[in-house]
Design a protein around this nucleic acid. Structure first.
Lengths: 340, 340
DNA sequence: AGAGTCTTCCAAAGCGCTTTGGTGATTTTG
DNA sequence: CAAAATCACCAAAGCGCTTTGGAAGACTCT
């Protein structure tokens, strides 16, 4: 059932039927009802290929997926996707993932924009002066950055959490508890979020005249194994930290294992706070010692970004507003006063 | 730069240029070279919207993503995606995720087929007599099932791992080590993979005249917390098992925690084997006691399914061949002889 | 030399929608 | 009451590609 058949059936022109269906004003309400009714009854759905050829609108949002045999997709992605999908579903938006060589994503961005394959894109895990952000900005396609880049001479729309504030609060708490030697097990410090977290820790320490020594900060991709390695390295030092802030729950698993292997205890010998993106399958309260966390649902972020993308596509949102969400500090059993 | 301009520039018809570019035979090789060359030089790329309107081909594969505020996307998905993306990238295929209400995916399948939004789809986590498989089969769109359904009067193409064989081997090993009371901590037993795994364990036990008691099998979604709960329930019974086969590494985390909470040890009091889908961020050899596993890379499966989908789209693959991959049994420190 | 066969190219007709630029009929306005 | 404005609709022109149905010229064959 296509437009031609439907309009013929109604003894109306394609123009009128199209307009009736798309809510244009220049059509009699009575006629519109007839049309809408007939469309529903016959299960008419405009062919999206035809529509996009005519309008250029696709009803899809895009994401360039970095791939490669040695490239791992961030496990957070799936939670983000849950949120994104949840919103997208109720707005008939689809998501197209365009796999790209992790080392050359630009080609793919250019392609999807040139081909008008999607109405908008989002960018995640940005780095300072991220080329993708600059590119997408000049290409002129609507976009939202999940996280923040830095060092541009232009503004851009983003949704981020207050990573610096979160880790500042976490570190401040630890300092208040008497800890003097803090360590940070961070994610990849080429990414902005990691830089912000480190900055937050440093700022909290500085407020008490303390510093975060180079030997007390690790920056690694967020795996259990790396958490373990980092913790061992830190705890086997002569000036081992008495408290650790950790960028991920997955790494925290490794930290806990290392602590156990070394015959230490949490929180007796070591206080631990980790960032929790809220996974349904791994909860901080279920760690052998319930884990204190800085918590922010990445799923909510996904939903919000879908919402903003939809708003930008339909012209409801403009400008380059950045939003920064506060992060909860949830204190559980894994923190205590510094050992004597 | 569109076809019209390019053909005008070459003083050829659109027909000829189109055919030259698409490799049709009825064009002089010399002319083809000229065309291809000019196209490259001017960066001409056919508009996909136009092409799909004309041909119906989209260059995209589809996946219906079950969503909902209470629905969690399987964390395995991201690894699967890595593999899929890895293949898709090198073949200029995109993946479109169509979010659907988890309770009504059929509408979405019908939509993407009716709208010809994708050239093929894949289905994951199938259940016995899965309606999605039946639907997609009658709708006539090329598809591959990742996993298996059962109980149809038709055949369909799938790629699955030998879940039954894997758990059969695991259980057989445990029995050989003298274990008489085995337990199974399984995933959602409405899904085929879980049914097959249980069947494998039962078969191995039966071979030695043993049975898997109802009180010794748990079926839960695969979270750390559920692993913990299941393990506690099992181990606090009067006839607690001396060995557990577990369907996921994430659940195994919970099992290990429960064992520790109860003051037991692995493998002294309990032998443990889990299924490993091969995550980069959580490795069985890094468990406090290295974990024995049945191992099969879900990432490889993703790549294979992309390959088969591509083959079906281009007509290279036909029929309803199902492939079943063998699973490795990797023995590490978490298994030992049954306690006296 | 004329008929048949390739080879190589083209004009034009779709694909199914949106949108431009109208046209009569009806209502409002000065 | 004529002119202007509004309403409700339509025919046809795209959007940019593929594909059908030739057609002109070169070649082979008898």
């Amino acid at each position: 059932m296509n437009l031609k058949q439907l309009s013929h059936m109604l003894a109306l022109s394609q123009t009128t039927v199209s307009r009736a269906l798309n809510g244009y004003p220049e059509v009699n309400e009575e006629t519109r009802r007839r049309v809408v009714d007939a469309a529903k009854r016959h299960g008419y759905r405009p062919n999206p290929s035809a529509r996009r050829l005519a309008t250029g609108k696709t009803g899809m949002i895009g994401y360039v997926l970095p791939t490669g045999t040695t490239v791992d997709i961030d496990p957070h992605f799936v939670e983000f996707l849950s949120g994104l999908g949840d919103y997208a579903r109720s707005h008939e938006l689809d998501l197209v993932l365009s796999p790209a060589d992790a080392d050359d994503q630009e080609t793919t961005y250019r392609r999807i924009v040139a081909n008008r394959q999607v109405d908008a894109v989002y960018i995640s895990s940005p780095r300072p002066a991220d080329r993708r952000v600059a590119l997408v900005n000049t290409l002129g396609i609507p976009f939202i950055v999940h996280g923040r880049s830095e060092g541009f001479d232009f503004h851009y729309p983003f949704t981020d959490i207050d990573n610096e504030g979160a880790f500042h609060e976490a570190a401040r708490l630890l300092v208040q508890l008497g800890h003097r030697r803090l360590a940070l097990i961070n994610g990849d410090d080429r990414e902005t979020f990691a830089i912000h977290r480190e900055r937050g820790v440093r700022r909290a320490l500085a407020a008490s005249g303390l510093v975060l020594g180079d030997q007390h900060v690790c920056s690694l991709t967020m795996t259990e194994e790396n958490g373990y390695r980092a913790a061992r390295r830190l705890l086997e030092q002569s000036d081992a930290p008495t408290a650790i802030a950790c960028s991920s729950l997955i790494m925290a698993l490794g930290v806990v294992r290392a602590v156990r292997d070394l015959g230490l205890t949490i929180p007796g010998d070591l206080s631990l706070i980790a960032h929790d993106d809220v996974f349904p399958w791994l909860k901080p309260e279920n760690f052998s010692v319930p884990l204190s966390t800085t918590r922010s649902s990445i799923r909510l972020a996904g939903a919000r970004i879908a919402e903003r993308l939809a708003a930008r596509i339909s012209g409801l949102e403009e400008g380059a507003r950045g939003e920064v969400w506060p992060v909860d500090l949830v204190v559980r059993g894994s923190v205590a006063g510094a050992p004597a």
